Simulated assay, not measured.
Amino acid sequence: MGGAMSSVEERVLCVNSGSSSLKFALFASYGERLDTLATLAVQNIGGARGRVVLRSNRGGRELEANHLDHAQAFETAFSLLEEAQAGPFSIVGHRIVHGGPRYVEPALVDPTLVANLRAIVPLAPLHLPSSIAGIEAVARRYPAVPQVACFDTAFHSSMPEVARRLPLTDGIDGAGVRRYGFHGLSYEYVMSTFGPTAPRRVVIAHLGNGASLVAVENGKSVDTTMGFTPAGGVMMGTRPGDLDPGVLLHLLRQEKLSPDALAQVIEREAGLVGVGGTSDMKELLARSRSDERAKLAIAMFCRSVRKAIAGLASILGGIDVLVFTGGIGEHAAEVREGVCDGLSFMGIELDRAKNDRAEDVVSTSTSRCVVRVVRTDEDAMIAKHSLRIARANR
């Protein structure tokens, strides 16, 4: 981590509020340069065996701490960050999973924005309440510090109507039921690694517990796999991805599932965990040599991503660069190989040795499509957006 300097212009705290966890990254800004001062994670909020992990250039701390709710977790986090850094934050940036149809770029937080977020909680009921709680916790503790909301959906606002529209009646579409797309901050960061010479046709596979892919043409999102909610698209850790709508009707009518029980199935009990018994890809890979369920889960995941790549390639008319990112995309060489296996007709050829080492470029020198592995940094993207918006509003 970069060290603190006397010429620090501003400190930016980036906040990522999950349904049962909090993640923080504290940056020092030196003009265009960002140095990481500290990271902190609060795990298992609302459950037993909670844990807090702090890493900073002054050392680290790990402690067991149970928190009843996000408000308690934020107070613990703020106290630890203050102890570690002994300096105020000048800006706080929040990752907001859903901006609805209104927010297509980062925005300064004010009462109107918070009210608008409350209104769209039904679009992301697992994520938005904790994000709102985070905004309120910062306002209580640091009332003079400006806050900036950075939306994961904003990157996809460039999608054309043919990609954004769902095949439903005008009345439903007019009510905001459409494809929004997610993981936008990650996609923005990946595209920034190309610099000013980004390829024309890029497919990015953000593969983690949540997973999605995007087709980028001339730097703009033109299609993506996630749709109205983060539950759609490719198979994920605990979510099924796209399902025949008739399955949901069957579960409601024949199995008599309540809406809450159905949500539990869709959000918590499907995907890798539903097929393989765990959402941990590392564990599945270790078990797959002797466990048929684990082997099937991995095969289904790779097949789902492979189909998405081919589909997005048809939208772009081919792919110049395929990028793997996210926890699985960056670290699971076997998954990258499994996904690319069968895509040779698109000119994709992996170099096994490079892939095993997760080099920046893992394709062969003769591959017609360059395949990269990029470590994403959503926090850095949040910090850059937050600095720009806060400075512009002074």
Results as ranks from 00 to 15, higher is better:
175 A>D: 10
2 G>H: 11
193 T>V: 11
228 F>E: 06
308 A>D: 08
259 P>I: 14
245 P>R: 08
370 V>H: 03
114 V>Q: 03
98 H>K: 11
229 T>W: 10
372 R>Q: 10
297 A>H: 04
310 A>W: 07
100 G>N: 08
335 V>I: 15
371 V>C: 02
291 D>H: 01
257 L>N: 13
99 G>T: 12
371 V>L: 01
242 D>H: 14
333 A>K: 09
27 F>R: 06
206 H>M: 08
371 V>D: 02
266 I>P: 08
261 A>H: 10
35 D>Y: 06
321 V>Y: 12
201 R>W: 10
117 L>D: 07
233 G>T: 02
201 R>D: 06
164 R>N: 08
334 E>P: 00
211 A>C: 14
39 T>G: 08
64 E>K: 14
235 M>K: 09
330 E>Q: 10
105 E>A: 15
287 R>E: 00
235 M>Q: 14
22 L>P: 03
349 E>D: 13
285 L>F: 05
188 E>S: 13
269 E>S: 13
20 S>T: 15
223 D>H: 07
86 A>I: 02
392 A>F: 01
151 F>P: 10
6 S>F: 09
101 P>L: 09
12 V>N: 03
198 A>W: 11
273 V>H: 02
183 H>T: 01
394 R>I: 00
110 D>F: 06
74 F>R: 05
252 L>I: 15
145 V>I: 14
380 A>S: 13
356 D>G: 03
351 D>N: 14
393 N>S: 12
40 L>Y: 13
90 S>W: 00
379 D>A: 14
95 R>E: 11
277 G>F: 01
323 V>C: 13
345 F>N: 04
232 G>V: 02
225 T>R: 05
306 R>T: 12
131 S>M: 05
360 D>Q: 09
191 M>C: 12
157 S>T: 06
